[in-house]
Design a protein around this nucleic acid. Sequence first.
DNA 1: GTCGTCGTTTGATCTGGGTCAAAGTCAGAC
DNA 2: GTCTGACTTTGACCCAGATCAAACGACGAC
Lengths: 248, 248
Amino acid sequence: MLPDTLTFAPRNCGDCPIRHRAVCARCDADELTKLDQIKYYRSFSAGQSVIWSGDNMDFVGSVVSGIATLTQTMEDGRTQMVGLLLPSDFVGRPGRNQAAYDVVAVSDLVMCCFRKAPFEQMMTETPHIAQRLLQMTLDELDAAREWMLVLGRKTAREKIASLLSIIASRNATLEMATASGEMVFDLPLTREAMADYLGLTLETVSRQISALKRDGVIVLEGKRRVTVPDFDRLMEEAGDDSDGGILS
Amino acid sequence: MLPDTLTFAPRNCGDCPIRHRAVCARCDADELTKLDQIKYYRSFSAGQSVIWSGDNMDFVGSVVSGIATLTQTMEDGRTQMVGLLLPSDFVGRPGRNQAAYDVVAVSDLVMCCFRKAPFEQMMTETPHIAQRLLQMTLDELDAAREWMLVLGRKTAREKIASLLSIIASRNATLEMATASGEMVFDLPLTREAMADYLGLTLETVSRQISALKRDGVIVLEGKRRVTVPDFDRLMEEAGDDSDGGILS
DNA sequence: GTCGTCGTTTGATCTGGGTCAAAGTCAGAC
DNA sequence: GTCTGACTTTGACCCAGATCAAACGACGAC
């Protein structure tokens, strides 16, 4: 457990893998030095809980590596995932002391944390941080609204295809993309987590994945490794405009 | 049509009904003067479209009075509401030129608009605006996540109860609250719009409203005026923690 | 090796909410 | 007044996805 995650810690921000995408993306060298002074790393192993809804939360931070989920739970145990946190995503809300959601590490996870008070202080002093945070929050809001369409109006099959295309394209920027147009990636989530993401049961998730496999939309190696032979086909199955609507 | 909405326009920001809740809330007198110079009002009558998804959008703005909806539409016509815009809510995204959603006036509507370029200019100069916009965006993100739980995991009855309690509590701050603990308000949405909000069909909305009425959770006068005799009961029906979880 | 656990698949059955259809209510136009 | 159209309600029926249940596969502990 906790293999080299602790030794992982990049000593200075210049070497950080998320330097140009996280909340610090716009900071100049000076600002980075200041951040460097108040930052600290925390590691979590897969399955571990980062924070519980309602807990006192005295830090904010960025996911450096690994994946975490943001979920909401009803009294009777029904749960809905409301955020999927990938490297560079921000956790916590400046100006709030209590966590509003459960945060759980889905894989081994490293976070770059800042104590809340000094971070909020810095936010007022260095507009670059607030600017970047606004941009990231607006992006998250757009993602949440896309997700609302998925939850409210798509069929189970479309939901699965949507999730697969989201994961595929989030990874696309990073790696993968087998020249030939094929895409290969590992599902970071269990069937149950996918069900929580999509407002389904895990059985339905399993059945629809099997169906997409049977129909040749995806190819599976084992239970986690997915190959998408034709991404446009997957987008069609997701019910999305195939000519990916250009925003921004 | 378009009754006194145009003459409505408050001449200066000091008199504005949303002065202390909109994106300008934190501005001081100086900043307000600058905003005053670049603002203009636009009126829309009920049912009119403010902007279509994909349209070029050269302004941003705040809802001054009236109600509008933000919706997404799939190619085959399925629609999902992704935002309900009440007075003081912000429309548009700085740094984006195309509208991402359809915006439709549900009632007669007055908006306070700013051309995008000067507004973005001001945002970089006066941190008060960006600060407030960040706060508002974070609030919207929280609301979107709450909404995701509703869409993904609640039953039709719970969905209706949730919507009613959201509308009730959004209004609560303003007016209403019959001392006795009763709440009375008008539904601003048609059954169809409620269905779009909740990921249901209008028939199901109608049936569930009838059921809540039959069970005494709400009382209807006509089709739009709602009385809630016992708000805690309504919250229970919504499946929410009755002891309203305190965040912030 | 066996056992236990966790994640997954598959089958059988049930049901909440969708779909199709018809009729009711109300406000504004004429 | 009555006609029209928008909105709403209610009924009958059906199906996608939930629920209940069983079994399978992979992996780590022993």
